[in-house]
Amino acid sequence: MTGWLTSRLLQSLAVLLVMSVAVHGLMALMPGDPIDLMIASDPHLNAADAIRLKALYGLDKPWGERYLAWAGQVMRGELGYSRLFAKPVLQIMGPAIANSLTLMGTALILSLLAALPLGILASRHQGGWADHLVNAISFASVSLPTFWLGLMLMVLFSVKLGWLPAGGMQSLTGDGGGVLDSLRHMALPVATLAIAGIGQYARHTRAAMLNEAAQDYIRTAKAKGCTPRRLVWRHQFRNALLPLVTLLGLEFGNLFSGALITETVFGWPGMGKLIADSVMGNDFNLALTALMLATAMTLLGSVLADLTMARLDPRIKYR
């Protein structure tokens, strides 16, 4: 196990290194730099200003030199300042990570709470009305664009019914600001993401359950007089969890990279919006740190999934 873990760690470090070069390189290749944008928007900025500012921001140096300077800084444990927000990178990312984790974590839990029973229900009534209904719900969930869904929920629950706030994380006036107020503000973005996630988990659960239903051990359990309830939950579902765990492991990184569209629609200041803004604004320190974190979390999620699978399935051994 130690050897396997060391090997995975080294692989992960190599992936992170390649990712950092790729992301830094791609950002450097993007047309225009921040000073070009300033020139375009400020008629009084002259050539001397442009040259001075490019030197000040280090944009006058070749790409390789800039990458090595960034990598050296990270090796010393300094993530630097965000160019866009003029603050230390961690100070900006901290609240955004917490916001994204809250939003996406809650949505993921709700998605699973709805999708797992639906998937199991569909698998138990394969070809029946319940299966067709779950399939319809799943396809609708997967097909609905989150942008449209979010706006429709907003129009219905905020504009028409006036039940829930249309955006933000808390009421900005009156007696807003408590736990209940925060939950109210979470309701619509969480519902949007949860609804969008139900389809894929329900489909995967259904497929995994049907796959297990055809296994010999299920037939044996039935022959031994196992109750249907025990059969499903004790035997079939436990084994069907394996592919779902792999899927959830890969989802782990997404919790840290946010949901750009939903965050934009609901004015939720999370990681998705922050990453998009930092990439578009050539904020190398912020963008690279955020993307490296998301990559690292995806890799970690994959390792955790492997470990969980070994725990769930005694046949799996890592060496």
Binding site: M154, V159, G162, G167, V265, F266, G267
Partner: peptide
């Protein structure tokens, strides 16, 4: 309070809902 809502459809919805 100055609230930033980048998407103009969402901005309009926030206005109509009293946000």
């Amino acid at each position: 309070v100055v609230r930033s809502v980048e998407n103009t459809a969402a901005l309009e919805a926030q206005l109509l809902s009293g946000g």
